Computed example of a mutant assay.
Amino acid sequence: MANTPIIRQVAWWALIPQLLFMWLLVFVFYLLSVEQFILFGALSYLMISFLLRNLIPTNHRKGIKLTKELKFQEAIAEYKKSIQFFTKHSWLDKYRYLVLLNSSKMGFREMGLCNIAFCYGQIGNVNEAEKYYNRVLNEFPKNGIAQTGIRMINSIREND
């Protein structure tokens, strides 16, 4: 796999409900008089977390894998499917901290749009990259990745 940059921004406050959920599981095992209730609670949390993160955002994960493999055109298709899914099921994206046990600062739609723009930039389609960065900024005005992408595109155009 290539050394493609992946940006992960964490919403640290989102870890609070996740820790509370883990401790709830620990407490359930305690009430069930399980001898190693902390271990069983923590392992249950990890298993549930792993399943949720791998079963629901499948297209997003495929897109990331393809991006790392430098298969940008294929990755774009996966990110578009992911955006479509999370547009249809917007509550999953909005409440991802609780439902998916995901502490990412950006939602899957926002990440997908940024990733599509990045992929278009990597295959040399600057116009499509710019279009997607602008779409990100229209929907998520404070997105620093899109702001930087637009500045980079403008800088390249000025130097041509």
Rank of each mutant, 00 (worst) to 15 (best):
L46E: 04
G124L: 09
S155L: 06
I76D: 08
C114A: 14
L19P: 00
E74L: 09
R8V: 03
G144Y: 06
V136E: 13
Y133D: 05
Q84V: 09
T4F: 12
G107H: 08
F85E: 06
F40C: 02
V136P: 15
K105G: 09
R96T: 08
A11D: 13
A14T: 15
A14F: 06
G41S: 07
L43D: 05
M111K: 08
K105N: 11
L92R: 08
Q18G: 04
K88N: 09
L66P: 01
F37T: 01
D93S: 04
N59P: 03
G107S: 08
R96F: 11
T148F: 14
Y133N: 12
N3G: 01
F72M: 01
R96E: 08
F50G: 09
N138I: 02
Q18S: 12
A14C: 04
N134K: 15
H60E: 09
I150R: 03
L32W: 11
R8Q: 12
L20W: 07
F29Y: 15
A2Q: 05
L24W: 11
D160W: 13
E69G: 00
G107Q: 06
P141C: 07
Y30W: 13
Y79G: 00
G107C: 10
A42K: 02
N54L: 03
Y95K: 10
Q84H: 12
Y79C: 04
T87H: 14
Y97G: 03
E158W: 02
E35H: 07
G107V: 14
P17M: 09
W23P: 00
L46I: 12
V136T: 07
A75R: 00
L51D: 04
Y133W: 08
E78Q: 14
N143T: 01
F86M: 07
G149T: 01
N125D: 14
M47I: 15
V10S: 06
L43F: 14
Q18R: 14
S44C: 12
L24T: 09
N125S: 04
N102D: 15
E69H: 02
Q9F: 06
V28E: 01
G144R: 13
A2H: 06
R8S: 03
P5G: 00
T87Q: 15
C119Q: 03
I76P: 10
M111A: 07
L25Y: 02
I7W: 12
L46H: 05
